[in-house]
Amino acid sequence: MNSTSYQACPECDLLIDLVQPEIGEKIHCPRCGLLLLRPRKQSIERTFALSIAGLILFVPANFLPMVGITLLGKANTGILLSGVISLFNENMWPVSIVVFLASILFPLAHISLSLLISGHLYFNRCNRNLVSWMRWMHHLDEWVMLEVYMLSIIVACVKLMAISPLIIGWGLYAFIALIIVTALLTSSLDKELFWQRIEQLSRDNNHAS
């Protein structure tokens, strides 16, 4: 039995004889209904391009003021990091670390890793760290919470509107763009294809040396 054409469903362990799907086709597990494979058009190229766009957007999204309020004649605007710092200064360091990781460090790490991996695959470069980068990215997936942060900005704005007029800064627009780019990035990244390409690259590299 050739194991490469077989796959097991990660959630119900059903052994499935898979036919490589066409682009745009979706393959679900026949027993539990999990989406198994969904090949994307130009997955590597698009992931590469979107990671660059994401890294660029990361700068204004983090350093330009997002929202602010005016109260008692004084204006106060905030960025992602300033929320973390205020929490830290109030002795809420466990919470501030969580906010920092989920809204700044993990998104940055996720985009950087996908840039590194797709860049190596795009230029057909082999690197022995590719495997660990892929695994890191796989484990980070769930902890990137930019879209949750967006929702909490909306709720916070509604609460603040009751006490003062809002100031909307350019940082917020950049942040929204960053969320759209990361969402596109996640959907264009075809993990199975990436793993197959990495395996192929390291095999070619071993033959060459």
């Binding site: 929202v67 602010g68 309020i69 109260l71 008692l72 004084k74 106060n76 605007t77 905030g78 300033s82 929320g83 973390v84 710092i85 205020s86 929490l87 109030e90 809420m92 919470v95 501030s96 969580v98 906010v99 989920a102 809204s103 769930e142 902890w143 919470m145 949750v148 942060y149 929702l151 909490s152 900005i153 709720v155 916070a156 609460k159 603040l160 006490i163």
Partner: peptide, 27 residues
Amino acid sequence: GRWSMLDIFMISILVDLVDFTGVQIIA
């Protein structure tokens, strides 16, 4: 699961923005 972080992020925004002499939000 991750959507419950909404409240935590909201607190970090409110604590940061509402910080005036006289009016303050503390976690």
